[in-house]
Computed example of a mutant assay.
Amino acid sequence: MGQRCAGAVLAVVAALLVGGCHHEQREAAARASAAALLARAPLTGPGFPPAAAAARSQLNGLTVEWGKNWQTYKRENFGRYWSDETDAVGGRNGCDTRDDVLRRDLSELREGDRNPCVVVSGVLHDPYTGKSLPYYYRRASQIQTDHVVALGAAWRAGAYAWTPQRRLEYANDLDVLLAADKQTNYDKSSKTADKWRPPRREYWCEYARRYTGIKHKYRLSVTAPEKLALQELLATCPAGQ
């Protein structure tokens, strides 16, 4: 009887060991698959942001009108959470959008061993201010994810008429997003280009190119003061850019 029990116990232990090995192999395969997917997923759309000349042309093609339905805006209209709606070419990579933004915008990047989506640490060279901001996973940081054309501004410029799915896609579009200094993001809030511009003048050109490219991509309108401000910002672009 004792020998039979001992044999049964050994069999169970062996099965557990084999099962554990298979589990580890599955985890390793999943990590490798995720890493491969991330490696081939572009985090910036083709041709984005547009060159200054293209941005000027796009700006001239935008509808000019005053914003509408501002009083009906709610953040929840664009979804409550970060998702994995699309990457820059319309696919999915298994990571939520905030992780994608951090992986794209931070330098000195260290990713998770078990989950390559997770950014463990890195440094943001903030485009709006020029500050170098450290990031550590699970620690408070001075980094937020900014919608270059803010959700409230997009709502007033036409997003109020979109489907919920279209708004969710906009809120998670990597072309729309930048990692940025938290206080500067608060200061920017939902202001349009005529009411706010980056403190760092060296970024005015790219900011206007991104902003105009987003408006063009989503067929959002601009107000007359907003268009004039974008023209002024694009005028700071170096010749030939």
Rank of each mutant, 00 (worst) to 15 (best):
E206K: 02
A88P: 08
Y170N: 00
Y136S: 14
R200F: 03
A140T: 12
A157V: 01
V101S: 03
A229W: 04
D126S: 02
V123K: 11
T223Y: 02
S57V: 11
N77W: 14
Q58Y: 12
G112F: 01
H216T: 06
A208K: 01
D100F: 07
G79E: 06
G45V: 03
V18A: 09
Y186H: 05
V123C: 05
G91D: 00
A51N: 04
H22R: 11
M1G: 12
Y170F: 15
A53Y: 00
R98Y: 11
D187P: 03
L109I: 09
L177H: 08
C95V: 04
H22I: 14
G90W: 02
D126M: 01
L59V: 05
R75V: 07
H125V: 10
R167M: 06
T212Q: 02
A35F: 11
T72S: 15
A30H: 01
P46F: 04
T236I: 08
G112Q: 03
W82L: 07
G91Q: 14
K191M: 12
P164G: 07
C5W: 12
T145W: 08
Q183R: 14
R138P: 00
R139S: 08
V222P: 04
V89R: 12
S189V: 01
A51D: 13
N77Q: 15
R166M: 05
S132C: 03
G45A: 15
F48A: 06
Y218L: 08
A34F: 00
R200T: 01
G158L: 06
L233G: 08
H147P: 10
R103I: 04
L37Q: 13
G122C: 11
D187Y: 08
R156K: 14
R114Q: 14
A14T: 09
A32S: 12
E206G: 01
V13Y: 02
N77I: 02
R75G: 03
H147N: 03
K215Y: 02
K191F: 01
N60S: 15
E24L: 15
W204A: 08
L177M: 05
R75N: 09
Y211Q: 04
W204T: 04
A41V: 11
L38D: 05
L124K: 02
A193K: 04
L178V: 12
Q58I: 05
V9P: 00
L43A: 10
K188Q: 02
L106A: 07
D173C: 06
E202T: 13
L220W: 05
G2F: 06
N60Q: 15
W70L: 11
D96I: 13
E24Q: 13
E65W: 01
L168G: 07
E169F: 10
G45E: 11
T212N: 05
Y160T: 03
K195F: 09
L230E: 06
G213S: 09
T212D: 04
I214M: 03
E108V: 05
G130S: 06
